[in-house]
C-alpha cells in the first residue's frame, strides 16, 4: 500500500504541476476582466511544442543540446523528494532541503550557461540577472528554513511539514506569518514572477527567465516550461505546507488539503501579479534584502520567545 501511495504521489506531482501556471494566468485574466486562457493551456502548449522540430543556433555547442532535458530531469527529481500530503517524498533525510535547493541550483547553472552559449546579448542579460537574483534569494530561503527548523525541531522537510499543525500556528502565529511572507517572496523570485520578472512580456527590460530560453525550440522549450512549472510546485509546496497544515493521517484528505493549499498559493501569486508592477531592476536586490530582514526578524523573534 505504501508503494502504491508513493507511486501515486509521483504521478500526481509530475502530471499535475502544469496546472499551477494555468491557475495564475486565469486569476490574472479575471483581474483584467477577460475570460483568459484555459486552465490546462500549459499542457496543450507542451504537447504542441513536443510535436515540432528543433532549430539549433549554430553558435551553440553540446551544452545547449543537453541543457533542457537535464533541467527537466533535475527538477523532476527534486520534486519527488518533496513531501506530498502528509507523506514523505521518495526520500527523506536530514538536510534534504539542501539537496533540493542545490539540484535547482544545478538546473539554474545549466540554464545560465546554455543561455550564454547562444552568444546573444539578450540571453546574456537574462543570465547575468538570474545569477544575481539567486545570490540574494538563497540566503532568504535558508534563513526561513533555519527558523522553521528551530520552531519544529526537525531538520528534514518531511519532519518540518509533519510538525506544522494548527496548534503550532496558535502558538507561533506572527513568526510563521513572517516565514510565509519571506518564502512567498523567494518563490516569486525563483520562479520569475512579478515583481521580479514578467513572464508575459518579451521585452528586454522586463524579462529574465523568458529571455534565457529564447533560442530553445520544440521539445526543448516544452521541457523548459515543464521544468519551471515543477519548480513552481516545489517552492509553492513550502508555502502551502505552512499555510495549510494537515494532520488527519488520511491520505486522501491530506492530499486534497495539500493540493488546495498549492492552489491557494497559485491564486495569491496571480493576485500579486495583477496588483503589483515589476520592481525596478536596480531595486530588486533591496527587495530581496528586505525579505532577508523579514526572515532574520522571524528567527530572532523565535529565539526571543524560546
Amino acid at each position: 500500500m505504501e508503494n502504491i501511495k508513493l507511486f501515486l504521489q509521483a504521478v500526481i506531482i509530475l502530471f499535475a504541476a502544469p496546472i499551477l501556471p494555468g491557475i495564475i494566468n486565469r486569476v490574472k485574466a479575471f483581474f483584467g476582466g477577460r475570460q483568459g486562457r484555459n486552465i490546462f493551456q500549459l499542457y496543450f502548449d507542451i504537447y504542441k511544442l513536443f510535436n515540432k522540430g528543433i532549430v539549433y543556433s549554430n553558435t551553440t555547442t553540446l551544452i545547449f543540446r543537453i541543457a533542457a532535458p537535464a533541467m527537466a530531469a533535475l527538477s523532476c527529481i527534486a520534486a519527488l523528494i518533496m513531501p506530498f500530503g502528509g507523506q514523505s517524498g521518495l526520500l527523506s533525510f536530514s538536510g534534504d532541503f539542501i539537496l533540493i535547493v542545490y539540484l535547482l541550483a544545478l538546473s539554474r547553472f545549466l540554464l545560465i550557461i546554455s543561455a550564454m552559449d547562444t552568444g546573444s546579448p539578450f540571453e546574456g542579460m537574462g543570465a547575468s540577472r538570474e545569477a544575481q537574483f539567486a545570490v540574494f534569494a538563497e540566503p532568504v530561503f535558508f534563513m526561513s528554513i533555519l527558523t522553521l527548523s528551530k520552531i519544529t525541531g526537525e531538520s528534514s522537510v518531511h519532519g518540518i511539514f509533519s510538525k506544522l499543525s494548527p496548534v503550532l500556528w496558535v502558538e507561533n502565529a506572527p513568526v510563521l506569518f513572517l516565514i510565509v511572507l519571506s518564502l512567498f517572496i523567494v518563490m516569486l523570485c525563483e520562479t520569475s514572477r512579478v515583481p521580479f520578472d514578467d513572464p508575459d512580456t518579451h521585452l528586454e527590460l522586463t524579462m529574465i527567465h523568458e529571455v534565457m530560453v529564447l533560442d530553445n525550440s520544440g521539445p526543448d522549450l516544452g521541457l523548459i516550461f515543464y521544468a519551471s512549472a515543477i519548480k513552481l510546485w516545489i517552492l509553492g509546496s513550502f508555502v502551502s505546507a505552512i499555510i495549510m497544515p494537515r494532520h488527519s493521517e488520511i491520505f486522501w484528505l491530506d492530499s486534497l488539503i495539500y493540493i488546495s493549499g498549492l492552489a491557494i498559493v497559485a491564486i495569491s501569486a496571480g493576485v500579486v501579479e495583477s496588483v503589483m508592477a515589476r520592481v525596478r531592476l536596480l531595486r530588486v536586490p533591496q527587495f530581496l534584502l528586505a525579505a532577508f530582514s523579514v526572515a532574520i526578524m522571524a528567527f530572532v523573534f523565535q529565539s526571543l520567545k524560546g
Binding site: 513536443f50 532549430v55 539549433y56 543556433s57 549554430n58 537535464a70 530531469a73 546579448p121 529564447l214 521539445p219
Partner: peptide, 26 residues
Amino acid sequence: FFAVFMFMRRKIVSENRVDLAPTWDC
C-alpha cells in the same frame, strides 16, 4: 530521467526536423 527525456526528444525529433540557423534572439 535525463535518459528518458533525451530518448523522448530523439524519438520525436527523428520524425521532425533539426535545423541549424544563426541565433534567433527574438
